[in-house]
């Protein structure tokens, strides 16, 4: 971190700065819109988990689902495995801004750690369950149904790690007297926490608004997540633009 800051100071001293912020941070920022567009395209068009297939299918229907979509599931999740690591850059940029806030850096560490835990149920388990299901054709439909359930239950029902992430971000924003992010972003995080809580009933229901393909558990949660992502990308843009060059950041 200090090496990057030193390099940034050197770059500014050479007079290369145009619109505020430094090249390294702008590279990190551009990862966000590019990654999240790819992320959305892969999940919606290829991987077949958005919109989620129904939870109340018979094992034979699940087998037919994997048979019909084997090619796009392979392409989609294989592509995702190539780009998923870029979430680390996106989360790192948020954590960097959190370390600029007038709060303990513990908030930034907790943010990163909570997301590192959440990546497993929130994305990777779904990907590998679906990839394994289409890897060997002719598997027992009951085994396929198990992979289907694990994949979608973890994907929609992965809660606690993400509520922690939103909570520490909201607290850091509200406690920060430097106003790196405006207070309304903390309240957007509160909406996210509520949607994560409302995803908990997916472990109980097989149909209706609280099932994993339900209007409340899935669709409202996804819409509010989309709002959150747009807000954080815009606010990171402003934060990077307004960040004084060579500003020391706490360790």
């Amino acid at each position: 971190m200090s090496g990057a800051a030193a390099a940034r100071t050197a770059a500014d001293a050479s007079g290369g700065r145009r619109r505020g912020g430094a090249v390294d941070l702008w590279i990190c920022w551009w990862v966000l819109p590019v990654f999240y567009v790819l992320f959305g395209l892969i999940f919606v068009l290829l991987a077949r988990v958005i919109p989620p297939p129904r939870p109340d299918r018979s094992p034979e229907e699940v087998a037919a689902f994997f048979h019909d979509h084997a090619a796009t599931i392979r392409i989609g999740f294989a592509a995702l495995m190539v780009v998923i690591g870029f979430t680390g850059v996106a989360n790192g940029l948020v954590a960097h801004q959190m370390k600029r806030m007038a709060v303990s850096p513990v908030f930034a560490y907790a943010y990163i750690a909570a997301l590192a835990v959440g990546a497993l149920p929130g994305c990777l388990m779904a990907a590998f369950c679906f990839l394994a299901a289409v890897f060997r054709p002719g598997r027992d439909p009951h085994v396929l149904a198990l992979l289907y359930d694990i994949g979608l239950l973890t994907f929609v029902g992965s809660l606690g790690c993400f509520t922690t992430q939103y909570l520490v971000l909201a607290l850091a924003i509200l406690l920060d007297r430097r106003r790196i992010f405006p207070t309304w972003m903390a309240y957007v995080c509160v909406w996210q926490i509520v949607t994560e809580l409302l995803a908990a009933p997916v472990f109980v229901f097989k149909d209706g608004p609280l099932a994993w393909d339900g209007s409340i558990s899935f669709y409202m949660g996804t819409v509010i997540f989309g709002i959150y992502e747009v807000c954080i990308i815009v606010l990171l843009f402003k934060a990077v633009r307004d960040q004084p060059p060579g500003e020391p950041v706490q360790d």
């Binding site: 207070t183 309304w184 903390a186 309240y187 957007v188 909406w191 409202m220 509010i224």
Partner: peptide
Amino acid sequence: PGMWVFVLGDLAF
């Protein structure tokens, strides 16, 4: 003003 963003959004949800 941030609280009003929250209130209006929350009422919508």
